Simulated scan of single mutants.
Amino acid sequence: MKHLVEVEPATETAGPAYRNARAKDGLLQPPPGLHSCWDIFRASVEKYPNNPMLGRRSVVDGKAGEYTWVTYKEVYDVVMKLAASISKSGIKQGECCGIYGANCPEWIISMEACNALGVCCVPLYDSLGAGAVEFIICHAEIQIVFVEEKKITELEYWDTHESFWWAIQ
């Protein structure tokens, strides 16, 4: 099965353009009633509340063990509590929230809490260096940041910044 199809040939200055084979004639439209990432997550919770959604793999003596899973409903419940906390802190729809940390279940939970409130989620990647993280925070007008606990010490020099620093575990 072919997954990509060429939709525009190469030119003198650019290579060919490709698109997913299912969208070869144009972008796919979302199903009715699903207009945002939040709608998709909420619909998934309604349809699959007891299915596993996020997993964490234990590591014992340097060896990967079994995954421990949380269901869509369990994730939704935490997301709603976190969204309420974000809302109480004064963050409004359309404002920006940064997430600084490794990909993990808490990253997804933080993102979905932002989606629930219509808050723009801005990933902060330290692979570009601490200066890039500071640049993004300042230029994206980020109001609040979720920070992985082990990265908090990297950000101590920003404690005068007006953003709130929250630790996620």
Rank of each mutant, 00 (worst) to 15 (best):
60 V>D: 14
105 P>T: 04
101 G>K: 01
97 C>R: 00
68 T>I: 07
103 N>V: 06
141 E>S: 09
163 S>I: 14
141 E>W: 01
134 E>R: 15
58 S>Y: 02
83 A>P: 02
80 M>N: 14
89 S>T: 07
144 I>F: 12
31 P>W: 07
29 Q>L: 13
118 G>H: 04
159 D>F: 07
87 S>R: 15
122 V>Q: 04
30 P>M: 05
71 T>L: 04
139 H>I: 06
71 T>S: 14
84 A>C: 04
50 N>D: 15
158 W>C: 09
112 E>R: 13
34 L>E: 05
77 D>I: 02
112 E>P: 01
65 G>P: 02
107 W>G: 00
130 A>S: 12
57 R>Y: 13
59 V>E: 11
28 L>A: 10
118 G>P: 06
85 S>K: 15
28 L>G: 04
52 P>C: 07
64 A>Q: 09
82 L>E: 08
165 W>T: 00
115 N>L: 02
48 Y>R: 07
45 V>D: 07
71 T>W: 06
156 E>D: 08
59 V>Y: 03
82 L>G: 10
85 S>L: 12
28 L>N: 09
110 S>M: 08
117 L>N: 03
46 E>Q: 12
138 C>Y: 08
36 S>E: 07
30 P>R: 06
84 A>Y: 04
78 V>G: 01
58 S>F: 01
164 F>C: 09
51 N>A: 15
59 V>K: 11
154 E>I: 03
27 L>E: 11
81 K>S: 14
28 L>T: 01
140 A>H: 04
91 I>T: 14
126 D>W: 04
37 C>N: 04
89 S>W: 02
115 N>V: 02
118 G>L: 05
123 P>G: 12
161 H>R: 11
89 S>H: 06
115 N>R: 03
146 F>P: 00
73 K>L: 09
151 K>C: 08
77 D>H: 04
54 L>T: 03
138 C>T: 12
125 Y>L: 11
77 D>G: 00
53 M>F: 15
134 E>Y: 07
30 P>G: 02
102 A>D: 11
144 I>K: 02
129 G>Y: 12
129 G>E: 11
62 G>T: 13
36 S>L: 09
165 W>S: 01
47 K>Y: 05
67 Y>N: 13
88 K>F: 06
54 L>Y: 06
115 N>W: 03
39 D>S: 07
55 G>A: 13
96 C>A: 11
82 L>V: 14
116 A>E: 13
115 N>F: 09
74 E>S: 10
32 P>K: 14
40 I>C: 13
68 T>F: 10
149 E>C: 09
132 A>M: 01
116 A>H: 13
62 G>I: 08
90 G>K: 02
164 F>D: 08
70 V>Q: 13
152 I>F: 12
133 V>W: 00
106 E>A: 12
38 W>S: 14
75 V>Y: 03
30 P>V: 01
157 Y>L: 02
27 L>Q: 13
73 K>I: 01
130 A>D: 06
126 D>P: 00
128 L>R: 12
96 C>M: 04
118 G>A: 03
58 S>L: 10
68 T>W: 03
139 H>R: 15
96 C>F: 06
34 L>P: 00
70 V>F: 09
70 V>W: 02
47 K>Q: 11
118 G>S: 07
75 V>Q: 11
33 G>E: 11
